[in-house]
C-alpha cells in the first residue's frame, strides 16, 4: 500500500530508447499480458467474492483485502471472452487506479519481467479492437509476445458500455 502517490500509466506510446521497465506477466488463455509492476499491489489466489447485483458484467464482485474493499474485475469478460468455469483455479492481480483498488481476475500470474524499450512495438492494426482498446503495445519476448495492458482503459468499461 505504499505506492499511493505513484502516477498511473498513461496511454502515450513508449519511446524507443533502451530504458528498462518492469512488468508482471499474466496469462489469459494462451496469451501473455503485462501489467506495469508499479501499479501492482498484491497477487492473490482464489478469493471469496461477493457478487454485486446489477453491476456491469465485467464486475465479478467485491472482496475484502486486509480491511479494504476491492472490486474484482473479470478480465476475460473485459476482453470479450467467456470466464473460466466457477471451479477453475484463478489468480488475481490487485492494482490501484485513482485511489481505488481493483482485483483483476486472470487465468494465471507469471513472473516479474524486466523489458527493454527496443523490444516494444505498437500493436499491429489487425489485432482485435477489443484488445487494442485496453493495451498500449506489444513486447517481443524470446519465445512469445507480451501485450501490455493499460490499466486505466481496462477499468474504463462503464464509459465504453454507455457509448
Amino acid at each position: 500500500m505504499s505506492n499511493n502517490t505513484l502516477p498511473a500509466t498513461t496511454r502515450t506510446r513508449l519511446p524507443a530508447t533502451t530504458e528498462a521497465r518492469q512488468f508482471v506477466s499474466i496469462t489469459i488463455g494462451k496469451q501473455s499480458f503485462g501489467i506495469p509492476v508499479l501499479l501492482v499491489h498484491d497477487v492473490l489466489g482464489p478469493q471469496r467474492i461477493t457478487r454485486i447485483p446489477l453491476a456491469p458484467k465485467e464486475v465479478a464482485g467485491s472482496l475484502n483485502l486486509r480491511g479494504r474493499i476491492v472490486t474484482a474485475i473479470q478480465v476475460r469478460r473485459r476482453l470479450g471472452l467467456d470466464p473460466l468455469p466457477a471451479d477453475a483455479e484463478t489468480m488475481s492481480v490487485v492494482v490501484e487506479h485513482q485511489g481505488e483498488l481493483y482485483s483483476l481476475i486472470v487465468d494465471g500470474v507469471g513472473e516479474v519481467l524486466t523489458l527493454y524499450d527496443y523490444d516494444f512495438e505498437s500493436h499491429p492494426p489487425t489485432m482485435s479492437s477489443r484488445v487494442r482498446e485496453v493495451s498500449t503495445g506489444i513486447y517481443r519476448l524470446k519465445d512469445t509476445l507480451l501485450v501490455v495492458l493499460d490499466v486505466p482503459s481496462l477499468l474504463d468499461f462503464v464509459r465504453v458500455e454507455a457509448a
Binding site: I52, L54, A55, S62, T71, Q98, E100, Y102
Partner: peptide, 11 residues
C-alpha cells in the same frame, strides 16, 4: 462503493 458501481441506485 467503487466509482464504477456508483450508478447503481439500490446500494
Amino acid at each position: 462503493v467503487a466509482p464504477i458501481l456508483r450508478h447503481i441506485a439500490m446500494f
